[in-house]
Design a protein around this nucleic acid. Structure first.
Lengths: 233, 233
DNA sequence: TTAAATTTGTACGTATGTATG
DNA sequence: ACATACATACGTACAAATTTA
């Protein structure tokens, strides 16, 4: 996002971010208006819009404007499916390295996912997932504040054990959303990849047997090192 | 190819045709030379080259030239017979476009997955997965040879209906394996991505209610456009 | 090792055509 | 018919990476 990245790419990224709040069918401002807004030539805006169109996010029609065509498609894979990482089945030694555990006010999205009021304090944990000592994933999870949870998580014995120590005997996965994304610089560093290499993002919500949300987490797996298997129960 | 088609497209088509006699790694003439040859501005040539790059046929490197990455003959134009209308699908997929249906001896892996002797003839189907007319995935499936199956698949009425026409009333997913991989040139062309962009690979096995393998398929989804949701019942 | 030439990438500007509303 | 908006195509200039001398 600094001066060495092309103008058209900065504009494309800005517009992409803004599309998150848009709906399919919404019209973008005209190329001339966008050019005026960003203080660039119209062709520079066109280059940015071409990138968005190539990604399938927008669609331009001559005479009409540029419309938002599609947001990421939600693709249900099946109902009676159970989700587990392949490494559990292959007999490898799983492990994790907790990088940080903090208690902070949660972001709006995080609080909403945990069914808590906005700005509620949350326990945030970040770390790496290992297989035979090899880094295969990076996770970032938020939990509601439970007595002693942060300390238990920091011991690195795993989420299940930490929750059990806090009196939560069991929890189940409400849903998982999977998508393939390019690794950013931070992720590339954690997973020992190059920027842009494919990474699988798994966004998951876990809740207790009564349906109370317990954990909202985003995990990124190194695409080349991980296969997720979805199999019926 | 008349006067109403844009110059850049005419040039792109001309270059694509000429690539048939080229080999991967060959260098194209410089943009300046091509501009002189076609008698157009350099930007017009750039627009044409951008189209070729988008299709995964060439790759440009600043300072070096433009190189051929893949042969047009590897590109589906030669193999695809015709585009069929997208029809109703298996319930989860909004649309499908069947590109080709062939009966061929299966590869060892394919035969093994279908529990057939090596070298058995298989019905192979290839096509695109759509959502609102937008290409979101590319699939390649193999089936055991059933009477009339190839013809039914070729009609583009969907896998479910084709199997039903052959007496298979129902089938279920045995398992799905997911991993994130970079798009190769062929896939980039199909999914309208750039080479190397993240793609989610789903390898799936479907079988009939008695456990007999019916379909072994590999689908690649455009990472930016698809989210797979896994939810328990 | 250095310097120059080559080649693609970015950004600007201008003009005109064509479809839409 | 008219204004709006995207599409095409020309031009210039400079930056950045590579190749060549």
């Amino acid at each position: 996002m600094t001066a060495d990245t092309p103008l058209w790419r900065q504009i494309a990224e800005t517009l992409t971010a803004e599309l998150a709040n848009a709906s399919p069918g919404d019209r973008l401002p005209s190329e001339a208006r966008l050019a005026a807004r960003f203080g660039v030539n119209r062709h520079t805006v066109r280059r940015a819009l071409a990138a968005l169109a190539e990604a399938g996010l927008v669609h331009a029609r001559r005479g009409a404007g540029v419309q938002v065509t599609a947001l990421p498609t939600d693709y249900p894979i099946g109902r009676r499916t159970r989700f587990h990482a392949a490494l559990e089945a292959t007999g490898r030694v799983p492990g994790r390295r907790v990088l940080s555990v903090e208690t902070q006010p949660g972001l709006a999205e995080e609080c909403a996912m945990l069914a808590l009021p906005g700005g509620s304090p949350l326990v945030r944990a970040e770390g790496l997932t290992l297989s035979d000592g090899q880094v295969i994933g990076h996770f970032r999870s938020v939990f509601p504040v439970l007595p002693g949870l942060a300390a238990e998580l920091a011991r690195g014995e795993g989420v299940t054990r930490a929750l059990a120590a806090c009196g939560v005997s069991d929890y189940t996965r409400a849903w998982t959303r999977l998508t393939a994304v390019p690794a950013d610089a931070l992720l590339a560093g954690h997973l020992q990849l190059r920027r842009g290499e494919p990474v699988m993002r798994a966004v998951a919500l876990n809740h207790d047997p009564r349906g109370q949300p317990l954990e909202y987490g985003i995990t990124h797996f190194a695409g080349a090192r991980v296969t997720l298997t979805v199999a019926p129960d």
